[in-house]
Amino acid sequence: MQQKKPKGKPDPFFIGWAKKPPKLLQGFLFFVSAVLVGGAAGVAFSIGASVPDPGNGTFLWSAGYQTMTGVVEAKPYPVLRLPPSEPGGEPRALLLSGVGKRGVQGLAGPLDGKQVDAGGVLLKRGTIEMLQVGGQVKLRAAETPLNSFEPQPAEDLGRWRLSGEVCDGKCYVGAMRPGVGLAHKACANLCLIGGVPPVFVSTSPVDGSSFFLLADAQGNPVPEDLYDLTALFISLEGEIERRDDLLIFKADLTTAKRL
């Protein structure tokens, strides 16, 4: 007996091996696909927009290997004090680090307060500079001392309360980008453990600078307690001093508050 065809439109039943879906489902599937694609694009855009600005920090590879002569100061972290590059210019102070996640305290300690030759590659971000010491020269007693060059004493800028983030100086200045935020916390702590100078990045400038070499309240290297505070938005109180164009924040870590 021949079966009668059902009256009305057939059910929009999807068959996996069919060449195309039923016409009644095509519009619905197109709408769902458009929503999914648009949603994925929106999520991708929001994630990209939330990534911190990597800034303009970078290795100055184009400048090549640099050799500089100045006075090294080992505390709180190694800094190279340089005379003006031209008559009437201003003296500079460079942070020093080693290759990789290492500091140069072992090289700088015996030479503290003496004129040295320092060789390496420069990193720069905004008003803060660092020399990655390495290569043939590294850090050694100056072969040709500078005549009558003596850095100016540190200038006391008073006590301040700052809000911002603790970063490792090397990644923040340009070795990594963006070099800030929770995603960078583990990397930052490894650098700090290795002796890389810590930097406090403030939301408000002091005397024109928002970047500060960080020390403890006595002007010594920061304790391990600081590692819990890296990559967090915090407030700190402490004394600030100027060495040439570098500001040092001697922070009282007992005043640290997470904001």
Rank of each mutant, 00 (worst) to 15 (best):
L122D: 00
A108F: 12
G120S: 09
L162P: 09
N147L: 11
L131E: 02
I128L: 12
V133A: 07
S148P: 01
G120E: 08
A108Q: 02
G120F: 04
K124C: 05
A142Q: 05
D156R: 10
A108H: 06
S148K: 12
E150D: 12
G164Q: 06
Q152P: 13
T144C: 00
L122K: 07
P145D: 03
F149T: 10
Q115G: 06
R125N: 07
V137P: 12
G158D: 08
G113N: 05
L107F: 11
S163K: 15
D112K: 01
D156H: 13
L146W: 08
P153A: 15
A118M: 03
K124N: 09
Q105M: 10
G109W: 05
Q115W: 06
G134P: 02
P151R: 04
A142H: 08
P145M: 03
T127H: 10
G113E: 04
A141C: 01
S148W: 07
K124G: 04
Q105L: 07
G106S: 12
V137Y: 08
D117G: 05
P151N: 11
Q105T: 07
L107E: 07
V133W: 00
R161D: 11
V166Q: 04
K114E: 14
R159L: 14
K138V: 12
E165T: 10
L146M: 13
G120H: 02
G158N: 10
Q105R: 12
G126L: 03
I128P: 02
D156F: 13
L123S: 09
E150L: 14
W160E: 12
K138I: 11
G113L: 06
K124E: 09
P145Y: 01
K124W: 09
L157M: 11
N147H: 01
D112G: 00
G126A: 00
F149Q: 10
G164V: 02
A141G: 02
G109E: 15
G120L: 02
G134L: 05
V133H: 02
A141L: 13
E129T: 14
V116S: 00
Q115P: 07
A118W: 03
L123F: 10
L139F: 04
G158C: 07
S148F: 13
E165C: 09
D156C: 12
G135V: 13
L146E: 10
P145C: 01
A108N: 06
L162A: 14
A142E: 07
T127F: 07
G106C: 00
E129Q: 15
G158H: 12
G164F: 05
T127C: 06
N147S: 13
E165L: 04
